[in-house]
Simulated assay, not measured.
Amino acid sequence: MKYKYQLDKTSKKYVCPNCNKKTFVRFVDTLTGNYLNTIDGRCDRETKCGYFKKPESNQIVIQKYDCNTKQVKPSYHTNILIKKFGCNYKNNHFVSYLLKHFAPIDVKQVIKKYFIGTSNHWAGATVFWQIDQNINIKAGKIMLYDCNTGNRIKQPHNHISWMHKKLKLNQFVLQQCLFGLHNLCDYDTSNTLCVVESEKTAIIMSIIIPSNLWLATGSKSGFKEELLKPIKNYKIIAYPDKSEFNSWNKRAEELIKKGYRIRCSNLLENLTVDNGYDLADYLMKRTA
């Protein structure tokens, strides 16, 4: 994908307007070859500085796809955002809910393990970062929960948004990954990985059964090979929400033919509960 303005591909560096170090890569006009200005660009000190300002108007000149994959190159968030939004947990409704049911030390550990964040996009909102196995931050999903029930707020509208929208990164190319995938480095192929739908369920199950790595697809449709490919060599148990077993099991059978070691649990399907009921709902109710 080629835009009118692109980061300079030469080795030239300028003084960063944020940290004042000579580590700043400026944007270049691809039509004229001239630098755009002194504030639009990216600092190479991604961890210690993280400054990255894109041009406000950067229309596409030519859009190119990889001839082999037919995919657009994904965008990534900078690491500094993890620290920036990794605070203010007293005003995080989801964290407040966890503290009502689990020991503070367990909640602290799971916050650290999954890099749970807090956003003021809505008062009390939570950020779930999607970080891949190579520690690339592919997305930040913002959601709002009720601090007492732990249920998502769906009225007067469904409270789900994305960090790139909040930050107004208009050219951000979103390509998601499994939530929790960055923890894969702590597990080998002898471990069993558990896949659920929601981030909330993965986090709660990580506290209840910490011996397994719990991952989330983020949606019903997220149970697909595109997201599961990084964990192909692991033993996988999928726990679909109530009413989703047939759909997920069908996909699991297709993946087995491709060499995946995966099975789909029908635990919830055999219970007399409402559609959408998930594993965390089941275990939280049993321990209440």
Rank of each mutant, 00 (worst) to 15 (best):
D132F: 11
P230V: 13
I231N: 02
S211P: 10
I142C: 05
F223I: 06
V196R: 11
L213I: 14
C147Y: 12
P210T: 00
V173S: 09
I160H: 02
D186N: 13
E225D: 13
Y114A: 03
L144P: 04
E226Q: 09
Q171I: 10
G124I: 03
N191Y: 15
V173L: 07
I135M: 13
I203V: 15
K154L: 05
N170T: 14
I209Y: 15
I203E: 10
I160F: 12
L144H: 03
E226C: 05
L228M: 15
I142V: 06
I111G: 01
H164Q: 11
C185L: 14
E225C: 01
F179Y: 15
K154W: 03
L228F: 07
V196E: 10
K220H: 05
L178A: 03
I208G: 10
K229S: 14
S198V: 07
C194E: 05
S190G: 14
K141I: 01
T217W: 08
K235L: 11
S161M: 00
G150I: 00
K200A: 08
T126H: 06
L215G: 09
S206E: 13
I135W: 10
W129P: 01
W122L: 05
L169C: 00
T192A: 02
K113Q: 13
K235R: 15
K138C: 12
Q155C: 01
K200V: 04
S211N: 15
N136M: 04
N120I: 08
Q130A: 11
D146L: 02
C177G: 04
H182G: 06
Y114V: 10
F179G: 01
G218K: 05
Y114W: 08
Y114N: 03
T149L: 03
Q155R: 12
K165Q: 13
I137P: 09
C177S: 12
H159K: 13
A125D: 01
N212V: 07
E226D: 14
L227Y: 07
F223P: 04
I116N: 04
Q155G: 05
F223A: 11
L213H: 08
W122G: 07
T126L: 00
G140D: 06
S221P: 06
Q175E: 14
A216F: 02
G124H: 00
S206K: 08
V110S: 06
L227R: 06
I236L: 05
L174R: 10
H164S: 09
F172M: 11
I208R: 03
M205V: 03
I203D: 03
I160S: 05
A139H: 08
I153E: 05
L215W: 11
F128L: 04
